[in-house]
Amino acid sequence: MSKQNTHGKTYKFGMVIDLDKCTGCGSCMVACMSENNVPFKEDETDKKDSIAWMRVYKLTNGKSFPETEICYLPRPCMQCGGKGDHGHSPCVSVCPAVATDYGHDTGVVSQIPVRCFGCRYCMAACPYHARYFNWWDPKWPGEMEKYLSPDVSPRMRGVVEKCSFCYHRYQAARDKAYYEHREEIHEDEYQTACTEACPAGAITFGDLHNPSHKVHQLVKPDPHHSGRPRNPKAFRLLERLETNPKVYYISEKEWVRKAGDNYLEGEWKKMNKKHG
């Protein structure tokens, strides 16, 4: 929440995931693990202590055979702008040690493992379960330490980690632009590892402020309503909590869009009349 270096260009990076294209293949999850030095344990089947910055949820429409439908929903950190999109993200506003902070120049919610002292208040605050605690010392068995990337420091036991929108890729793009005396980085210069990996092309990434970027065109964020999508097929998870995520989802399926938030009986119909 502290003001950061704001000279130069500011962005609002965001992600749009087309759920109709997502096949649940898991490439995004693994690309993220590989890119960000996410560790693994012998037993990762307790999903409540399995670190996955990107987690793909399986949703069902709840109907019985053969009316059943399923949909996969990839969930990185939503990089919440918080109420009014002022940077008071649920997690940032509660972290007592400013170990997670809002980047006003990028819209990215940082996580500084060396600052974090492991109180886990941010985890309690995040309704998306996007935050993961290092319950164990990370271990890379055999020689696997050798594949670790120097771009992202491995975290120690006792601290929280989460998706950073591959911030190190932004830094690299920014440095490159700086060397080339450019104010602005190009859309293709900063793409996250999951976006790049998705073989279905379901993930789109870019600057939500920039009308020429695909993400902007896909969801048409409403600047007067903290970036709420104007595309009726687009939605954000738990929109009603006013967390103001920068991750948007698109689906033609009504039940999928409805699953994005909680509605009282009859409310969905009422609220969605305007979109037909």
């Binding site: 929440m1 007592p96 040690a97 208040y121």
Partner: peptide, 12 residues
């Protein structure tokens, strides 16, 4: 760190 890097907005 909770004192040294205090975030005054945090209830904690």
């Amino acid at each position: 760190f909770i004192f040294w890097h205090a975030n005054v907005h945090s209830m904690l």
